[in-house]
Simulated assay, not measured.
Amino acid sequence: MTANAPIRTESLTKRYGETVAVRDLTFEVERGEVFGFLGPNGAGKTTTMQMLTTLTRPSSGEAWVAGEPVTDRDAVVERLGYMPEEPPIYDELTGREQLEYVAGLRDLPDGEADRTIRDLLGRFDLAADADDRISTYSKGMKQKTALIQALLHDPQVLFLDEPTSGLDPRAARTVRNLISELREEGMTVFLSTHILPVVEELADRVGVLHDGRLVAEGSPESLTHRAESGEESTLEEVFLEVTSEHPEGEVGADEERSEFAR
């Protein structure tokens, strides 16, 4: 494990009563890397993201984001950007008002906030619509507004939960291009999605969660090449295999991630 990795977990676990939602999760994400986080519904992806973004506390184990322990909420929140699947934006506000509101919550100086908002609106092709109410925005425009507000304070680490879900092809392409640009600029991106082609296109590495355990991890290329047989496969086939070959409760600690090259 790398001590200064922007995202790092060691035996991270979350229990809700008798239910273990995430079990002994250990992995790291390097600086400037897009990490694709996959798993079926109920696998524990949302719980993992909630722990990493300080929205819920781990039951045991440890995690660090941008060098800070996730138990130090103020320090972590200052350094991360988070775009949930249902972003907190207000239809009655204009796009500019929404971003000014978030900048105020972040305590950004007025001059700096104005410059940053102006620059990001232009970059995301929203400048012409910035003073229209968000209620008039398309799904893609709302997604771009949510992504801008996650970037206003120039975070070190960006968490994205289904950022292209429900978008038309053109809007989805815009968001994917923006993620690629952010990676090229050195930002670390944690990308949770069900859309496998997005992961294949964008991710430097992939982690597959099943029943709260990390059952496969590696580059998209390594995960689509069976180490023992040399047979090429699609990421979809790999995903279906590793999330079905270990029924709940049958993955031992020594078996996790053992089938694929990392």
Rank of each mutant, 00 (worst) to 15 (best):
E162I: 10
D24F: 10
Y90M: 06
E236A: 12
L108M: 15
R262C: 02
L178R: 14
I179S: 00
A130V: 13
D132I: 10
L55T: 13
D211G: 11
R15C: 10
A63W: 07
V206C: 00
A171H: 03
V175G: 02
L126E: 00
I7A: 06
K139E: 08
P169C: 12
I195N: 06
G218M: 10
P247L: 04
R79K: 15
S138Q: 07
Y137A: 06
T193F: 01
K139A: 10
E241R: 11
V70P: 02
L214I: 12
S11C: 12
F159C: 11
E68G: 00
G166T: 02
G32A: 04
E221V: 00
G104T: 13
H225T: 12
N41T: 02
H210I: 05
A128L: 06
T224N: 03
A216Y: 10
L209K: 03
A227L: 14
D154H: 11
G17K: 07
A171M: 05
S165T: 14
I7P: 04
P197F: 04
P6R: 06
E250R: 14
Q156T: 08
H225C: 07
S219G: 02
L214E: 06
F260G: 03
V175L: 04
S180R: 14
T26L: 06
V238D: 08
A130L: 09
V76R: 03
G140M: 00
F124I: 08
R205G: 01
S229N: 15
M51V: 09
P220R: 01
P6Q: 10
A66S: 09
M83C: 08
E33H: 00
D119A: 15
E237R: 12
I7K: 03
N41Q: 10
V206T: 01
V157S: 01
A253I: 14
R96H: 03
G252V: 13
G95V: 04
Q143S: 13
A253P: 15
S59M: 09
R73P: 05
V198I: 12
M51R: 11
Y101P: 03
S244D: 12
E245S: 14
G140R: 02
Q50P: 03
T145G: 01
R262P: 02
M51D: 13
G32Q: 05
P69W: 09
